[in-house]
Computed example of a mutant assay.
Amino acid sequence: MDASVLITALCLVLVIEGIPLFLAPARMRRAARELADLDSRVLRLIGLAAMLLGAGLLLLTRS
């Protein structure tokens, strides 16, 4: 894997993460408060589901 692919992927993550902060900052604050109130186990499950979904989609699109 070329380093430029990794840099491109990280740049796209920043763009995608920045869109809701730019468009709806008040909603993002509310969502952050709600996330802070969630149990750690729930957050881990959400993180695991996101990673598995991302890896699965990556595998589907790369083959």
Rank of each mutant, 00 (worst) to 15 (best):
V42P: 02
L53Q: 04
A26V: 05
L14W: 05
L52I: 12
G18A: 09
R62H: 11
F22K: 07
M28I: 09
A32V: 02
V42Q: 09
A36S: 09
L43C: 02
L23G: 01
A50T: 12
L60C: 02
R30Q: 14
I19T: 03
L59G: 06
L52N: 03
L6E: 12
D39N: 15
T8Q: 13
G54D: 08
L59H: 07
M51C: 07
R30V: 02
L45I: 04
R44Y: 13
A9H: 06
L21N: 05
D39V: 00
L12F: 13
M51D: 05
V13D: 04
R30P: 00
A32C: 03
L10G: 01
L48I: 10
G54H: 10
I46T: 02
G54R: 14
M1L: 04
L45R: 15
I46P: 00
R41G: 03
T8N: 11
L59R: 15
V15Q: 04
L14S: 06
S63Y: 15
A31E: 11
L6N: 08
E34N: 08
A32L: 10
R62G: 04
G47R: 10
L43V: 03
V15S: 02
G54L: 15
A36K: 15
I19H: 01
L48N: 05
E34F: 11
L21M: 06
P20L: 00
A3C: 00
A55W: 11
A36Q: 09
R44K: 10
L10A: 07
G18K: 04
I16G: 00
M28F: 03
L38H: 10
L60E: 02
L48P: 00
A49D: 07
V5Y: 11
L12H: 05
L48D: 03
I19C: 01
A26L: 06
L14V: 02
R29G: 00
L6I: 08
A3Y: 06
G54Y: 10
A49E: 07
R41S: 11
L48H: 08
R62Y: 11
R29E: 09
L52A: 14
L21F: 08
I16R: 10
R29S: 08
E17S: 08
A31W: 15
S40M: 07
L60K: 13
A31G: 01
L45C: 03
L21G: 01
A31Q: 14
E34L: 10
V42T: 14
G18N: 06
V13Y: 13
V13N: 05
A31F: 15
L35Q: 06
S4M: 10
L10C: 01
V13P: 00
L35A: 08
V5G: 00
S63V: 07
R27V: 01
R41D: 08
A24R: 13
A55F: 13
F22S: 01
A55G: 05
I16C: 04
E17W: 15
A26Y: 03
L12D: 04
G54Q: 11
R27Q: 14
S4E: 15
R41I: 06
D37Y: 13
F22V: 04
L52M: 12
A24F: 15
T8E: 13
D37Q: 14
A24H: 12
L14H: 01
R41A: 06
A49L: 14
I19A: 03
R44S: 05
D2I: 02
P25H: 02
L12T: 01
